[in-house]
Design a protein around this nucleic acid. Sequence first.
RNA 1: GCGCCAAUAGCUCAGCUGGAUAGAGCAACGGAUUUCUAAUCCGUAGGUCAGGGGUUCGAAUCCCUUUUGGCGUGCCA
Length: 549
Amino acid sequence: MKNKISKDITNSLKKLKLKYNDNFKVEIPNDPEHGDFSSNAALINAKLNKMNPREMAQKMAEALQKKRDYKKVEVAGPGFLNFTMSNSFYHKFLIKIHNAKEEWGSSNYGQKKKILIEFVSANPTGPLNVVSARAAAYGDTMYRIMNFLGYEPFREFYVNDAGNQVDILAESVELRYRELHGDKIDEFPSEAYHGEYVKDLAAKLNAAEGSKLLHYSEKDRLEKMKNFALEELHKMQLESLQKFGVDFENWMSEKKLRQEGILEEALSYLAEAKCTYENDDAVWFCSSKFGDEKDRVLIKSDGNPTYFVPDIAYHLTKYQRGFDTMIDVLGPDHHGYVPRLKAAIQALGLDVNKLEVVYLQHVNLFSGGKQVKMSKRAGKIVTMDEVIDEVGKDAARYFFIDRRPSSHLNFDLELAKSASNENPVYYIQYAHARISSIRKKAKKAKINLKNFDTKLLRKLTLNEETELIKKMIEFPNILQGIANAREPHRLATYTHELAGMFHKYYSKYPIINEKNPELSKARLYLILTLQTVIRIALKLMGISAPDKM
RNA sequence: GCGCCAAUAGCUCAGCUGGAUAGAGCAACGGAUUUCUAAUCCGUAGGUCAGGGGUUCGAAUCCCUUUUGGCGUGCCA
């Protein structure tokens, strides 16, 4: 839409033999008085032609006026061009949207670019928490939108199933298991995992294996416990995510990377590039050469790799798999670590620009206005499951993507529960449900769109009707903007606005009026198209679109 | 100390990457229901866009600076 107008503007400039650069913009003005679209083309290019912006705009307006699609083209303010489209233009567009059905907004915009979206990637040492829930909603919505726009997105979860933290997990299970067999644990170590789920894991293991494990060597026993706990926790996380409507194409295991020797591969590449050195019995990476604030340890003096090495290896595999863009969705506590990761990628001779990092800010959980303090070690966490169970999948998904990724998210559980009727997600779903019941009424009144004559759309002359069509025309652009900026919250805002426009229209004008079947048909055509757009938007957000509420 | 993110209505947040008189929802107050669902709608009130400077036709948006808050700054992950 905007593209079409841009093209017309460019053509008019060529015709008038004016100099221009095409970084001008075509926008939808806030104030309807300023027309349906406006452009700053004359403002930007006036200097180039040594003209007064208004004078230049005037010439352009006269040239553009000749086109049939424009009802009028006006010059306003310091030299804006304001376009008002003709009604018939909008009606043509409405037909286009209607015929596109569930595909409106879909395109090959992404040109099949392969996009890896890595998100959640929570440690397999406990149930998923609310931060993971935010990441899950974010990553999955991005995936759905990019998929819809003709990218080839790929969802991946990186499982840190090796290293220190899983050893601690095994020891934590061991202690709880011993408790079940009568051992008194005076003081549960502070670094161990304290959550109730550890006790559950021990009990489940005990039910399966009994006291048998006590006769294993300590090493074998811990290994057994580690594998058991990892498997169980993975199942738990998988279940939570599925309940949330989030799937992954791949779960990448750190353990597997280690077994396949990718760590060594990455290390050897770094050594070949002469980016490693030994100091104090440890192996270091010269990340400061690539802009990191200091060098980092790769191999600790005890001979074990730091967590950094598997991360380098993991990113190496991302590059080896040939993605055009790789997006890491990280929590805010990881931003200090990205410079060293990017340094490693540069040292490996890879294109660092293909890696993009999105930081999601914290989720502050409130209960009745009071902040809930969460601590994994102390076992005080609010899990993703608890949130979903309390507020429902639909509301939870909406809440978690409703905000800009870079802003903190305050989530009040009590409020989300008690005020669920004022919840924006219900407002949107209600619009969808209302249209379904209008459809029912239309059926009873024998008003339908069989053999619909599109000439009837001429009956749609209300301002509200034009505004609704305009809003739907915007939809594909909204989606493209979301894909470019990686900001799915714009879809939540858009859909909320669209639903609001419908509610206002609905309460002001009757859709079905048996005395005026022609107008009724035209309006039915409009709102059924609208309903489809709402349904597409909800689907992209992973939210259900009910016919009844 | 250094680095990252933020600061917009009483509260929670948008503001389409520089456009015209800064917008929603909640909360407050006043109204609308013999009607296609009132989970809705209409109206009133609410602002020094944290402060100061700069860039230009034009700034909530970009740059500098000050203030405030969150996070990071391990041979933890």
